[in-house]
């Protein structure tokens, strides 16, 4: 069992660990990357190579565990076996942060593996408060929840996404994983100002930032994690830096995953922006 690694304040930039990079990282290369985020569900039940690779890497890098199947906004009971296995995994890996998404993903017997939005209203605020309290109690840890890229909003939404998130994080003592790419994608698709979104966020609650490159489909933006960072998303990060500078930042790439060096180039770009901001 290796010792838990903590984020180096001088290198707050990480990338999502993906299997095509295993062999590169196993050679312990000198890297600009300061920490790694894993998808919890890809590791928590396997006893094979992915788990071994993770065990080796966690002695070199701080690890953040990001889930995709908690389905916090579902109206079904929690899958207690899933939560039990997650808890065991977190206890073993001891990540510096655990997180999932503000969404529902389907039902236990029909998991769509899609991150689906819900209406931003008081009914769901109350429901999510209870669910978050329950899951944080079962896991014995605080969670961070990621704002979603959603391709529709509900007629029954009575508040904005940022008002909902602000209320929710205040009332549940959970953290926020702020995905700037999602904010930008949503702002384009649903026609709002991303700056309005960021102005409502309590940055003391933000424990991790996600950044990625979206793709353009027809005339809407799709959160595909398939491109380098767009200038508009970098501009949002600069706006965040004017409020708080030490939040760990993750760059993610999930479609047609390029060599690790391509991800590192994005990290170097972000580091340069960050360095200027802290001078």
């Amino acid at each position: 069992m290796s010792v838990k690694q903590l984020i180096n304040p001088a290198n707050i930039f990480g990338v999502g660990l993906r299997s095509p990079h295993y062999s590169y990282l196993e050679q312990s290369p000198k890297t600009e990357v300061g920490w790694l985020e894993i998808i919890s569900e890809n590791y928590f039940r396997t006893k094979g190579k992915p788990r071994l690779v993770l065990e080796n890497l966690r002695s070199q890098f701080p690890i953040s565990c990001h889930g995709v199947s908690l389905s916090i906004a579902s109206y079904e009971e929690f899958d207690l076996k899933y939560l039990h296995d997650l808890k065991m995994f977190y206890d073993e890996i001891d990540p510096f942060l655990i997180s999932d998404h503000l969404c529902f993903t389907g039902k236990k017997l029909n998991n769509l593996h899609n991150l689906l939005p819900f209406a931003y209203n008081h009914e769901n605020l109350h429901h999510l408060k209870n669910r978050i309290d329950q899951v944080q109690s079962i896991l014995g840890r605080q969670l961070a929840f990621e704002n979603l890229s959603a391709y529709f909003d509900y007629n029954s939404s009575s508040m904005t996404e940022w008002e909902f998130i602000s209320e929710l994080t205040k009332s549940t003592d959970c953290h926020l994983l702020l995905d700037l790419n999602n904010v930008f994608v949503n702002s384009h698709n649903h026609q709002f100002s991303p700056i309005d979104f960021l102005s409502m966020i309590d940055f003391n609650r933000v424990k991790e930032i996600h950044m990625a490159g979206y793709s353009i489909r027809e005339n809407f933006y799709f959160d595909s994690h398939s491109n380098p960072l767009y200038p508009e998303v970098i501009a949002l990060y600069e706006s965040v830096l004017s409020k708080k500078k030490n939040i760990p930042v993750l760059f993610e790439w999930d479609e047609n995953i390029p060599p690790f060096e391509v991800l590192e180039a994005q990290i170097i770009k972000l580091k340069t922006i960050w360095s200027k901001a802290i001078d």
Binding site: Y151, F152, D153, N155, N189, F220
Partner: peptide
């Protein structure tokens, strides 16, 4: 039950 948006 869903809002139409200019892009979608």
């Amino acid at each position: 039950y869903i809002k139409n948006s200019p892009h979608l």
